[in-house]
Structure formats: structure tokens, C-alpha cells
Write a protein that binds this DNA or RNA. Sequence first.
DNA 1: GCAAAAGTGTTAGGTGTACACCCATGA
DNA 2: TCATGGGTGTACACCTAACACTTTTGC
Lengths: 230, 230
Amino acid sequence: MTPLFYREQEKFYVSVDCIILGFKEGKLYLLISKRKFEPQEGQDTLMGGFLRSDESLSETVSRVVFEYTGIQDVYMEQVGTYGEIGRDEGERVVSIAYYALIDLEMFDESVCEIHNARWEEVEKVGKLVFDHNQMLRDTIEILRKKTATQPIGFNLLPEKFTLPQLQALYEAIYQTTLDKRNFRKKILEMEILEKQDDKDKSSSKRGAFYYTFNKEKYDQLLQKGYYFSL
Amino acid sequence: MTPLFYREQEKFYVSVDCIILGFKEGKLYLLISKRKFEPQEGQDTLMGGFLRSDESLSETVSRVVFEYTGIQDVYMEQVGTYGEIGRDEGERVVSIAYYALIDLEMFDESVCEIHNARWEEVEKVGKLVFDHNQMLRDTIEILRKKTATQPIGFNLLPEKFTLPQLQALYEAIYQTTLDKRNFRKKILEMEILEKQDDKDKSSSKRGAFYYTFNKEKYDQLLQKGYYFSL
DNA sequence: GCAAAAGTGTTAGGTGTACACCCATGA
DNA sequence: TCATGGGTGTACACCTAACACTTTTGC
């Protein structure tokens, strides 16, 4: 069944590596675990897995993300493919990196123990195996461009969030501070947020109103040629 | 030598597909050839090749681009990786797409005959094999974003080019028209172009001055925190 | 002399950015 | 009553976008 010409070609191990990001306490966090086999066993690594023949790439990513977080249907995007000959010291492996954005309130803490996994501040991540640091850098660069032009940051927040939370998220992604008034003006005039009646009182006495992201409204605006931009 | 855990994993065919772009007569062109083996033999296809164990991904791309254009050291960027199970009807193949920007004056016409290749206007490209149309669409989207923020368009032009040529290039990429005065003002005030003493008289009686892109000057500006933007 | 493309400045409107004070509440 | 974070409006600088005429020269 395999065409003749194909059979003359070499085959390779193909893996996915997942840059799983979460947000809490005003900081971006990366899920890191200890590598469970040689080479570099015991070193800090991204979550990864080998591609299987009954899976598309994104299915492999979903499997890996679910295994390490207990969450399904996460937002994910391809970062790029890393294919240098010596990148994996064990064997020639071509690896496709994906980032995934997680709402930490959905995260199942028990998997941390199972997999020796932990959440590390993105800004404080140390040496990871192979080219995983490069994958992380590439992810952050892509994330910065993407969050500026598409409303994907909400994937890092709970369904209901406050404007101070949202602003802190953008500040963490861009590693900068933003003017409160300008931020609120800009995000609210897009009219893609729905103000709720209740408040989050966990971080102040006065409390901050909850908002939700209205995807339908955003899609309508896209149709009319409007663009998200922050 | 191969670690035990790896040996339990499946291996896959890995290929690269190249979106080779050129620019002439105010239009973007894509290099297309006829597929030389089953399945879909004889259909229009991007230039592709299988990854070999002694090559990195970009080396494979260089080999393919050289084979089909006779040009070395081309500008190239990864577009993305396509790994759906049934995308190649012949066998499971994971394919990494790269685009390459070619100066058509360097192009060796003789390879067209050898490979049944031809330059087709990007806007008029018909059905290609597998998911190659998707790869092309993704390329154009990336190219539009990238040319707006980085000076990569020059790779599609000869060493010496005129401002009307450069403007036509941007108009072809964005599929729009630009104001001549605004365009010239913007590109010139970046001070990354060097005006030459001679003119191109092929497209008008008066002739248009040649310019060259000064990469050193651009790199210096980058250091100082300036950004290219058009 | 005329057709055809190259080249050149100004202005108005809109967008981004900087900035300071009052409000609500729990302790 | 006070400390803490939430919430609000304006003014100025800058950038973007719109716009028309003159120049050069080969035919």
C-alpha cells in the first residue's frame, strides 16, 4: 500500500513539547517536570510526548496536556518545529512545540505529585533540557505578538475576572506597567466584555466588578472588520 | 546506543514543503511543479523533499530550494508543521512548511524544464495537492505580518531596486494600493536605504533612481531600539 | 509637444499617552 | 477614621492619511 518512492525514505521519531502556561498572583507560570528517562533523566523539562500513528499533532498535545494538568479542551497554538540533528542527545527526534494557556483554577494539583511537576515563574525558569529554553523564548515572543492583536489572554483567566486582574495579566506578558485609565478605556470601548453584577472582594475591601469575555460579540465585530488590539 | 524508551516509539516520514516566492511585473509569483510520483502524480504541488538523517530541517529546505532554483543562501522562514493523519494519501507524513523569498534575477530558468516547474501568480494559484493550498494561505498571512515589521521584502528584489518597485512589492503583498508620497516619506526617513547615482530607465523615460538596502545601518538602528514598520 | 512615470509638502483629524483625584469598604 | 485598591476624564503631542502639481525625457 505504501507507495514505492516513500519506502526508500528514512523515518524519524516525532515528538511534541508543550509550553503550558498559567497565571496567578500577577505572574506567568510555566509547568515544568523532571525528565523520567535518559538522556538527562531528572533534569527540568517541558511536558512532552511522542507522536503516535493514530494521532494528529494536536491530539498528541491534547493527550500530553491532559495527562499533566487534568484539563481538556485547552487553548493551544503551534510555536514551531525543532529539527537540529543533535538537539536530542538520545536519538534524532524532530519536535513540534506547542504552547497551551491554562486557567489555573481548573488545574488538578494532584498531578504535580504524580509527575514531579511544578509551576515555575516564567521569568525565573532555569536551564531546561535540550532546546527547551529556546522553545520557551519563542513562545513568549509569539504570545506577546498574539495577545496584542487577538483576545486570547482570557484563556489564562477564569470565566469571570476583574479588570485589575486582566491588566495584571497583560503586564505580566509584556513585562511592563500599563496606565490603568488607558487600559480600561481601550478594553471597554471594544465592547467585548460583559460587566457582571457581582464583585471580587478577595483583593480589596471595595471589591472589583467581575467581567466576562463575550466571544459572540467579538466574532460579530470581526465580521464587520474590527480588530482587537491592545 | 538508542535509549530503551525511544525504541518503543513509532517513527514517521518527515518532509519539508517549500513555498518559493518571487516578484516580477508588480506581482507575487509562486514556484509550482508537477508531482513526480504517486499519489496524485502529475498534479500541481509545492516543492518538497524528505528529511534525511544527516540534515537539519533548514538544510533540507536549502537542498530543495537549490534543486529547484539553482540559488543558494536564500532567505527562509518556517511557516508551520502539518501533521493530520490523512493529509498525505500515500502514507503518514509529517510535513514542515517553509517559505523562501527569491530574487528572480538570480533564478535559473533551465530548472523549469527539468522539473516541469513554473511560476504562477500567487493570486491565481489553483488546486494543489494535499494541504498545500493551506500552507500557501498560511505563508501569505505570515508574510504580511512580517514584512510590515521587518525589512525582509528586499529579499524579493535585486540588490539595486527603485522606490516604485519597492512600493509595488508592498502593494502586491498587501493586495492594496499605497500613497506614493506617504510610502516614500516613511521608508526614507528610516534611513536604511542608500540612494545610488544611476537610474533604472526600463519602466519610464525619466528613470527612477536605484536604492540599496543598508543592512549594517538597519542593525545599528535595531541596537538603539528603533523598529522597522510599514 | 505630449504622454507617461518619477518625484515632492502640507494639513486636518484621529490616536496614543501622560497625568491626579475621589470612592467604597473592612478592619 | 484610615488604609487599600477600584474607578473615573482631560489635554497635548504625535502620527496617519488624504490630497495635486511639477519634472524629466523619449518618442
